[in-house]
């Protein structure tokens, strides 16, 4: 089990109002600038974005450590995969 309580994000990205698949593309581009193991925090909307972005991230080998419900939006803490 990951101990995510104290994890601090190395970068953040607010994708409120950004539609699929642009939200994922932006997340991907940001992750490409980062090192393996670093943490990225993104905010995505409810609905299609919260259904699709986590799946695409998993497919590409990244790991979601934490999901916070912000009410209508979600904050995802992502650890960059290899």
């Amino acid at each position: 089990m990951d101990n995510t309580g104290e994890n601090k994000a190395d970068a953040t990205l607010d994708l409120s109002g950004v539609k699929c698949p642009i939200n994922f593309v932006k997340t991907k581009l940001k992750l490409e600038e980062m090192e393996t193991g670093q943490l990225l925090e993104v905010v995505v909307d409810d609905g299609e974005p919260i259904r699709s972005v986590p799946k695409s991230l998993k497919d590409e080998g990244h790991k979601i450590l934490k999901v916070d419900d912000l009410g209508g939006r979600f904050k995802l803490l992502i650890r960059k995969g290899a």
């Binding site: 089990m1 990951d2 995510t4 409810d46 919260i50 259904r51 986590p54 979601i64 934490k66 979600f74």
Partner: peptide
């Protein structure tokens, strides 16, 4: 399970 709730979001 970490209780992240993504599965309930995924399941339409």
């Amino acid at each position: 399970c970490t209780g992240c709730t993504l599965c309930s979001k995924a399941c339409i």
